[in-house]
Each structure stands twice: as structure tokens, then as C-alpha cells.
């Protein structure tokens, strides 16, 4: 490995993203699911900033900033939903919530 270039960052981002996907697909605990989603969001932020840095274009950072803001909003609402579900069902296992089945 001679020099750290863009594809190292992208590869790292891809790895973390895949870990996030694995978390979403294998775990049933709603809170851990949420954290996996945060992992995926973070990996995409990393990719965005890496591109921005290697293109000398600050717009990528702006985008990352918006992603953080949206993630914050999402976490707030998502956790509120989890708490509500827990209140009503006394569980946060996502398999216990399947009222919407066809």
C-alpha cells in the first residue's frame, strides 16, 4: 500500500455499510436495528466527504451535514415510536409487531 487514495475510503465505507446491512437483517432488537441504520448513514457520509475532499468541492460536506440533521430527526421520531411500541406491547422485538400483515 503506497498512498491512501479515494478508493481506500470508499472501500472502508462499503465495509461499514455492509456491516450495517448485516445488522438490520440479522438482529430483531429494534434499538440495535436502529443503530445499524445509523452505521449505514455514517458510511454514506464518509463516502460523501471522501469524494468532496478528493474533488476539492465543499458541497459534499453540506450534503453530509444535511444527512446528519435528517438522521437526528429520524432518531428522535424512531425512538419515540419504539418507546410507544414498548408501552403498548411490553417488547421491542420487531417480530412481536406484525399487525400490518395482509
Amino acid at each position: 500500500m503506497s498512498e491512501i487514495t479515494i478508493h481506500h475510503y470508499i472501500a472502508l465505507s462499503a465495509i461499514i455499510f455492509s456491516i450495517g446491512v448485516a445488522g438490520v437483517l440479522t438482529r430483531k432488537n429494534a434499538i440495535i436495528l436502529f443503530m445499524s441504520i445509523e452505521l449505514m448513514l455514517n458510511s454514506s457520509n464518509l463516502a460523501l466527504i471522501a469524494f468532496a475532499s478528493f474533488m476539492s468541492n465543499p458541497v459534499g460536506q453540506i450534503f453530509a451535514l444535511f444527512v446528519i440533521a435528517v438522521a437526528a430527526a429520524e432518531v428522535g421520531v424512531g425512538l419515540a415510536i419504539i418507546v410507544t411500541v414498548y408501552r403498548n406491547r411490553n417488547s421491542i422485538n420487531i417480530d412481536d409487531v406484525h399487525l400490518m400483515k395482509g
Binding site: 448485516a22 445488522g23 443503530m35
Partner: peptide
């Protein structure tokens, strides 16, 4: 660090 801690998270 990032990869390891991510793995630990899930």
C-alpha cells in the same frame, strides 16, 4: 477501529 467497533455494535 471503525470496522471492529461496528462489528461489535451488531
Amino acid at each position: 477501529i471503525s470496522i471492529f467497533s461496528a462489528l461489535m455494535v451488531i
